[in-house]
């Protein structure tokens, strides 16, 4: 066992030198909400993050991981330092999870040496992990300038990805549904790039036609109209996809992106702190709360009174 100070120093130095052990350890500290982590962040945090974050999202089984196994090395060949974070769902019954995104990437990771981390959603329901921004900050501090995020295989409303990414690729595959699915609000609206994957499947032309039919009803300034067709087994179309990602990145306002990611995180941390404080008050004043709940006050007024306790303390 090391003492706290030297453990922090070890991790901080390791991150600055981009040591994989230290980066990985810091992400675990963030995930486990260890009290060491804020001290690490305070010492690695830099203003003006230059890292771009690319989200590859879509339904389970549409080929996100396989596509990333091509995109990652290609971005690396273009001169970027690339890291990948893939999130899989945690069980609502046991909290455990099966993190299987590596299966499709392992060969590509071994060849390219790209840093890849699997994260469990740990109860979050928006398709990401609560610690994802912390992981982005750690990777960015370690010198990675491109981070690819693969959220949990997503449904229509998993839109948290928009808070932390500068480019969003929405992956579709034959069988995603007809033009009605394309018209629905949510995920579809977020796309900077659409991918129609699995060009080896017989229904792919029909799926593309249905999707284009819908797109033709939306003004081009409201929704991206480009669809890139890929085959994530052979790699067909992935060069074009990488070019399209790089093109989109040229138009990204890094200051605005940074502001977005920062604001979201500050709010999350602040909410967390208030929640912790509330729990402490609730523990310390459990008798008072019991009386409050039987006092005949409606729930809103009672909650107001409870919140006043925080205000009185600070």
């Amino acid at each position: 066992m090391k003492n706290r100070g030297s453990e922090i120093a070890d991790i901080v130095n390791g991150i600055k030198k981009s040591r994989r052990e230290s980066i990985a350890r810091a992400i675990t500290l963030a995930e486990n909400e260890e009290t060491l982590f804020p001290d690490v962040i305070k010492r690695i945090y830099r203003k003006n993050m230059q890292t771009r974050v690319i989200g590859i999202t879509g339904a389970p089984g549409c080929g996100k991981s396989s596509l990333i196994s091509f995109i990652g090395p290609k971005l690396m060949a273009a001169g970027h330092r690339v890291a990948i974070i893939a999130v899989d769902a945690s069980s609502p019954f046991t909290g455990g999870s099966f993190l299987g995104n590596r299966i499709r990437m392992q060969e590509s990771l071994e060849k390219s040496g790209i840093f890849m981390r699997s994260m469990s959603s740990r109860g979050s329901r928006g398709g990401l992990s609560m610690s994802i921004t912390n992981a982005i900050i750690v990777l960015s501090s370690a010198g990675f300038d491109r981070i690819i995020i693969e959220p949990v295989g997503s449904g229509q409303s998993d839109t948290d990805i928009m808070d932390i990414t500068s480019t969003i690729v929405v992956v579709l595959s034959p069988g995603f549904g007809d033009e009605i699915q394309a018209a629905k609000a949510g995920l579809m609206e977020l796309a900077d790039i659409f991918v129609m994957n699995k060009t080896d499947m017989p229904d792919v032309d029909r799926a593309e036609r249905d999707f284009r039919y819908y797109l033709s009803t939306v003004p081009p300034d409201k929704m991206v109209h480009e669809i890139i067709k890929t085959n994530a087994i052979s790699g067909e179309g992935t060069d074009e996809l990488v070019r399209s990602i790089e093109n989109h990145e040229k138009g990204v306002d890094q200051t605005a992106f940074y502001k977005k990611i920062f604001e979201t995180e500050v709010l999350r941390i602040a909410k967390d702190m208030v929640a912790v404080e509330l729990e402490e008050i609730a523990r310390a004043k459990s008798e008072w709360i019991k009386r409050l709940s039987t006092s005949g006050l409606d729930p809103y007024s009672a909650a107001d009174k409870l919140l006043n306790q925080i205000n009185n303390q600070s």
Binding site: S90, G96, S97, I103
Partner: peptide, 23 residues
């Protein structure tokens, strides 16, 4: 538990690399 499964046939080198990245 959080189970990381990288598929079949990884070499000892890839096991160690993976174990480090995944902490």
């Amino acid at each position: 538990m959080e189970v990381i499964y990288p598929g079949l046939l990884p070499t000892p080198e890839s096991i160690v690399n993976t174990a480090i990245d995944e902490d």
